[in-house]
Design a protein around this nucleic acid. Structure first.
Ligand code: SF4
Length: 533
RNA sequence: GGCGGC
DNA sequence: GCCGCCAACATA
């Protein structure tokens, strides 16, 4: 692939439609030939982010645990695409075929290029690649499903598949078998369907599911099921492409702007459309950053443990999960976050079965609909962690030695560490925590910490990201509900749509920006092993 | 992780 | 083996 990075004037980016049409004759294409066109770096970045948004729409849909291509799935996806301003892709995916409108053809080009761009970003690890391939295949199936019989035929021809639909005569010979093996279709429908005769080895999943007629080593596959064959081909194509991309990635990354784009891509915040009153929730893409700048030790440790091990034990999930809710991570993002991590060590199904419920429950969306308050320091300090655990208050739980080295690995100078340890060794964990805050934010005063979420907010405030909580969104109006079981405190019940409890007041850009500022400043200090205090 | 249900 | 339900509580 040659992404020549010539600086071009913007208006030249629109390549001649005529030549595009021959290049991209069809909405659905095999991603086989790497693009040879030169792409300006601005467009390169734009395309990368655009496809990321596209794939994340699909990801969100599968997070909801819907069957791909089910009506409900399509509904969600198309709503989400519209919301993301990706209508053009919606057309690409639902209008099937080979329209001749200029806009559609431009979209095909973007589709094609952006796919190849993301290959560069997603070839760098197994995990990323797996995610990428899964989303791409969902996209492919989505597009393919919109094709009519004629369009499928055309697709096969223009992509060098040597298969042709049965002629009427051929179809006649096997029609009994077809009737029998085509579930849920009336005879009349079957008459109209195209069928393809292919070696059964190419559609093993259909064979396994008894979804096609078999005869003499050949499977008879109808137009719709053909996606099985074509899809496998496409998947090979992409997987091989990722392999190939690995070898050329160094080359492309010679340009450091590209290199930065690509590396930052998979956890970059794609700027959700907040028009729908979802303003200023904390996107999970910024958690890595936040864990370094604004989370207290206990939470940062959880976060890093999760990222490293793709798992965390139950009490840790409670502690960190509720904390995340408290800082403004939405339910959807929470689900996505845990899922993305855990799914690296278990299949999606297992995750859904054993963890999803609890996340909903923590957000007050299941059972008695109680919306739980995140753990306080007192609580966290109380429950001591066992061997495999990483929850609890590190100041309390860790032995002095490992605590010290942890602090130093987080950039504290020797003298700063001593200052923290002074309190810790006396059992004043929260004060030590406050000291750590003061040192890392180089703040004039040391705040008294008694709640991790308080620490977080204090930190955001120090960075100028969050204002004092607006009066309007103060803690929930207690809506008392009769105490059903005669025990427990149910005073914090919340209405279904009372979700956005605590939020950040400023825009996303500012948050990201000053986090960067802080961590850069912090890193400078780090090199000098001395922090001003 | 606990409790509970089949 | 499958599943549902629970825990919490700072706070200006
Ligand atoms: S003092 Fe509170 S906030 Fe700080 S680490 Fe311990 S539990 Fe977390």
């Amino acid at each position: 692939m040659e992404f020549g990075l010539k600086k071009r004037a913007r208006h030249e980016v629109k390549v001649e439609v005529a030549s595009l049409e021959t290049k991209y004759p069809h909405n659905v294409m095999m991603y086989h030939y790497p693009p040879t066109e030169d792409v300006h770096i601005d467009e390169f970045e734009e395309l990368a982010l655009e496809r990321l948004r596209l794939l994340r729409v699909l990801d969100r849909a599968s997070t909801r645990n819907l069957r791909v291509l089910s009506d409900e799935w399509k509904e969600i996806v198309s709503a989400d695409l519209t919301r993301e301003g990706l209508r053009s892709y919606l057309r690409l995916c639902s209008n099937g075929g080979s329209g001749k409108h200029e806009a559609d053809i431009q979209t095909r080009r973007r589709d094609y290029l952006s796919h190849f761009i993301l290959r560069l970003a997603y070839c760098r690890s197994e995990d990323l690649a797996r995610w990428f391939v899964a989303r791409e295949m969902e996209l492919f199936r989505y597009k393919f499903a919109a094709l009519s019989s004629a369009e499928v035929k055309q697709f096969l021809e223009s992509n060098g598949f040597e298969i042709h639909p049965l002629t009427e005569d051929q179809k006649d010979e096997v029609k009994d078998g077809l009737y029998e093996s085509t579930a849920g279709q009336s005879v009349a429908k079957i008459e109209l369907l195209d069928f393809y005769k292919v070696p059964f080895t190419q559609v093993l999943d259909l064979v396994r599911g008894r979804r096609c007629f078999l005869k003499a080593g050949y499977a008879y596959v109808n137009t719709h099921d053909l996606v099985s064959l074509v899809g496998t081909k496409q998947q090979d194509e992409i997987e091989q492409g990722l392999q190939a991309a690995k070898t050329m990635v160094d080359d492309v990354e010679a340009d450091d702007r590209i290199s930065r784009t690509l590396k930052a891509l998979h956890n970059s915040y794609t700027g959700r459309d907040y028009t729908i009153c979802r303003d200023a929730a904390v996107p999970i893409e910024s958690l890595d950053q936040l864990s370094k700048t604004s989370m207290p030790l206990c939470m940062r440790i959880c976060h890093e443990h999760i990222r490293a091990n793709h798992h965390i034990k139950h009490t840790g999930r409670m502690q960190y999960g509720l904390f995340l809710k408290g800082i403004g991570v939405t339910l959807e993002d929470s689900l996505r976050f845990w899922r993305e991590e855990f799914t690296k060590k278990m299949d999606a199904d297992k995750f859904t079965r054993s963890y999803e419920y609890n996340i909903y429950h923590n957000y007050g969306k299941k059972g008695s609909m109680v919306n739980y308050t995140p753990y306080s320091c007192a609580k966290i300090i109380k429950d001591v962690a066992g061997p495999g655990d990483c929850h609890g208050c590190p100041y309390k739980n860790m032995d002095q030695g490992s605590l010290k080295s942890k602090l130093s690995s987080y950039g504290l100078s020797a003298s700063a560490i001593e200052e923290v340890m002074f309190f810790v060794s006396r059992g004043h964990y929260q004060i030590g925590c406050g000291k750590y805050f003061q040192l890392t934010h180089n703040s004039p005063v040391e705040p008294s910490i008694n709640h991790p979420n308080n620490y977080f907010e204090e930190s955001q405030m120090a960075m100028g990201n969050r204002q004092k909580r607006a009066n309007g969104s103060a803690p929930p109006k207690a809506r008392i509900r009769p105490d059903i079981k005669g025990h427990g405190d149910r005073s914090m019940l919340m209405g279904d749509d009372d979700d956005e409890l605590w939020r950040i007041a400023e825009t996303q850009e500012r948050i990201m920006q000053s986090q960067k500022d802080i961590s850069e400043a912090f890193n400078d200090d780090l090199d000098l092993t001395q922090i001003d205090y």
